[in-house]
Design a protein around this nucleic acid. Sequence first.
DNA 1: ACCTGAACACCGTTCAAGT
DNA 2: ACCTGAACACCGTTCAAGT
Lengths: 223, 223
Amino acid sequence: MVKPAKTSADKRPPLSRDRVLHEAIAVADEGGMDALSMRRLAHRLGVEAMSIYYHLENKDALLDGMIDRVMAEIELPEPDEEWQPGNRRRAVSLHNMLARHPWAAPLMESRTNPGPVALRYYDAVLGSFRTAGFSVPMAAHAFAAIDAYVYGFGLQEFSLPFDEVPIEEIGQAILQTLPPDEYPYLTEMIIDHALQPGYDYSAEFEWGLDLILDAFEQRLGES
Amino acid sequence: MVKPAKTSADKRPPLSRDRVLHEAIAVADEGGMDALSMRRLAHRLGVEAMSIYYHLENKDALLDGMIDRVMAEIELPEPDEEWQPGNRRRAVSLHNMLARHPWAAPLMESRTNPGPVALRYYDAVLGSFRTAGFSVPMAAHAFAAIDAYVYGFGLQEFSLPFDEVPIEEIGQAILQTLPPDEYPYLTEMIIDHALQPGYDYSAEFEWGLDLILDAFEQRLGES
DNA sequence: ACCTGAACACCGTTCAAGT
DNA sequence: ACCTGAACACCGTTCAAGT
């Protein structure tokens, strides 16, 4: 008997850990963490909910796997790169990753078992500071401060459901209900800054990032 | 007929928006966001789940109410206070609030309708910068950078379930499974820094905060 | 005015069973 | 080896009904 050749429409690729993780990230990217249920994910994979449990132990393992995957999207500082441009590139690419995966920031910080991708990432970043002459405590300061800034900025920037409604309308809407003499500085900020034509909030990210990087450069020179 | 005097054990105080919010915050503080279900909350209030809906429209309104309440715990910069000590005090008290309510950081950033408490907070912070001579764009920079740092730091510090297990054991556990020659800088950081007797991670927060505040002080002097 | 019971459309997960 | 169906203990919310 000859095995019948299957047409491409005939059958989906078999379920696998990889396919499940890929689709889970897609679901979370589109609809947020609330949209990611085992049942809905299974439906998108053309399979029953219970089938997922053959490839991943439970939902926690699914979340760990998703984090490991998106962390691989972060560019590492290169060994032959100066610490500042290397970490600038890393921070910007982390920021971009958080833009693609708005659900990731809170999740990354609440998981306890770092995968190999995470460990390599930590080691590369710490290495970039140490080889540039940072002391061990100073490397800890730099890692903590830069990452707190990047995650925190991403948290406010990307966890808002502003994909459809442009930020101007939000500002306008707030202005409508705002007694201007009760909140003069907030009113001023919205009118004279946030609602100005050239305003670009994402430029704010790199401004603050450079402030922090420059501050470390300075401390390095002092010691 | 005389109304019978009720003994204190006889009856709980009647349900109210205030009691619901108070208890909801307590539940989230103890068990995290996952523990907060309408049914469990109702049970703690000695009431059926549906009773809550009389006082709050739905779970979203509950979350908005919780955020408004915890934001009231943040100390505002005073009008007669210098911008730097005022914002240092504010940032530290925000950090403390996030320590008490680890669930708050991701939630605060994902809500869209700021209550009166939030508006007053924004206005007070912006006012402290403007009266100190910050331009409007510079006040925006400062607010964005400082708050990104505080929220991001709190995110990594408090969303970990490290209440019971001390951080040393975590470090030890990671070390066990870590091939030291593959991750030399990470190994060094854990052994020579994180596991040292005097190590205090919470001191890291104020170190980075002062770095950022000083950097703004400097830019102010330059312009 | 304030609270409840039953019902609906969902969850994650276990476990025995199918191929 | 890989997938499924039925079942369990949960969710948020609607709606009509109780006092």
